[in-house]
Amino acid sequence: MIPTIPQPSFTKWCYRAYVTVFFVYLALPLTVVCVFAFNNSVFPSPPWEGFTLAWFFGTEAPFIGVFHERSILRAIGTSAFVAIWVSALAVAVGTCNAFLFVRHEFRGKALLYMLMLLPLIIPGVILGISILVFSSTIANTLEDATGLWFDGMRPGLPLVILGQFSFITTFATLVITARLQKFDTSLEEAALNLGATKLGTIRQITLPFLMPAILASAIVSILMSFENFNTTLMLVGSDSPLTITMFDKLKQGSTPVLNAVSLLLIVISAVLGLISLFFPQRKG
């Protein structure tokens, strides 16, 4: 139960064994993905054929490494482009929302807050198709009316960005709102009292206080965007982000180059994730 309650050592031992097995279960898939990135074989499966770095740096078929595989490099670029847009938009809107929910009282605030949470409970696939249907309908109507083409409203990167933005913003809002709630407004009053302007106060006092949360939510947004699949799948056009490219390759039959990409993703995600956790801890 808790350390101060005496328990039979057998029970304690069983409990620890279960916890250990659980963490093995957690680590196992990621471990094999990483290990087989270094296997000198064209299939990411046993037997172990020896160590190689060819799946990272190889240039000759069939051993074409990540850093020379055009389609993957392009997909990484696409993902990064999408992620940066999504992150910037989500953090900007999230910060506005935080100020709106913490600093303002208005009619329908509770309703608006609930609406803001809705994207969390809408399955990603549904979010994707609803935006797809809506934008296509508008594009059709506009094209019928004007005779012009509206490619931006057809499946493609702009829609992917909007689709991911539509639910990642909720997370950014929650993180930044939580931080702003901890802010002691008397600090702002002190700054105003000392002669600062209203905007100057927000820029010099409030935003620096929010910065850890803003950075953390920016990183989390990038991570979520990078790994999003369901919404993206429905909105993607000819330029596919990394997860879609990998999915297509995986369906065709995988080579360890996918393991190599995954290894890079694991390392980068873990580092970004850890950074996002430690940002808010600084300065309380």
Partner: peptide, 8 residues
């Protein structure tokens, strides 16, 4: 494990 893409 959950910061890593579901695909991975």
């Amino acid at each position: 494990p959950f910061w890593v893409s579901e695909l991975v």
